[in-house]
Amino acid sequence: MEAATYRDGVRAAVAIAATVWFFGASFGLVARAAGLGVLAPLVMSATTFAGSAQFAVVSILGTGGGAVAAIAAAVLLNARYVPISISVAPLFHGRRLRRLAEAQLIVDESWAISSRGHGRFDRGLLIGAGLALYVAWVGGTAVGVAGGEALGDPRALGLDGAFPALFLALLVPQLTDARARVAALLGGAIALALIPVTPAGVPIVAASAACLLGLWRRG
């Protein structure tokens, strides 16, 4: 398959970036409502750039939880970025600082969009989609902290149902052989079993154990 340009990546991410924008706005809104001010939520969106961890921080601090609990939840939620960043490592070259900066565009959605199957990923799609999503997330947060009550609740718009559907759409083309299908089923089952018994974030990280099926010889 031909390598994609950054522009292709932006184009591929437009629909999901619109959804991410709404969630950024609602993050800004709830962070402001939780008394976290205007600047801190913006700095967080610009540096952390990971929705679930940021929402967890706001909900813990907003309900009287301490810094340690908030940090622990966010670290667990974002631990999945270690295996995720390993999977796309070959796409990054040049000086260390450049690799460090570009790697910040890795987020679930950009990573998923850039996946070409069989462990291959496309740099143009990853960077282009990551840029579009970054602008949407930080821009949405800015609108939210500035008072985005008029936008409506993303849940009322059903946007929380859009993310799993996106991941499903990107999963299906990956299920090209028996090994990938079994590993995906096992990973999903591990996550499902752990949701009620572990803190959020752990089910996804633990599911990566299913990758060990890669050691199973091809038939």
């Binding site: 995720i84 390993i86 993310f163 991941f167 949701i195 009620p196 803190p199 959020a200 089910p203 990566s208």
Partner: peptide, 30 residues
């Protein structure tokens, strides 16, 4: 080789886990 084979499965496995957690995940419950 063997590590590459394991990493190659990260995409289907983590995507499946994301589908599950984003569909039925809640505050420490399904």
């Amino acid at each position: 080789g063997p590590v590459a084979d394991v990493v190659a499965l990260l995409a289907p496995v983590l995507l499946a886990a994301l589908v599950v957690t984003q569909t039925v995940g809640g505050d420490n419950r399904l």
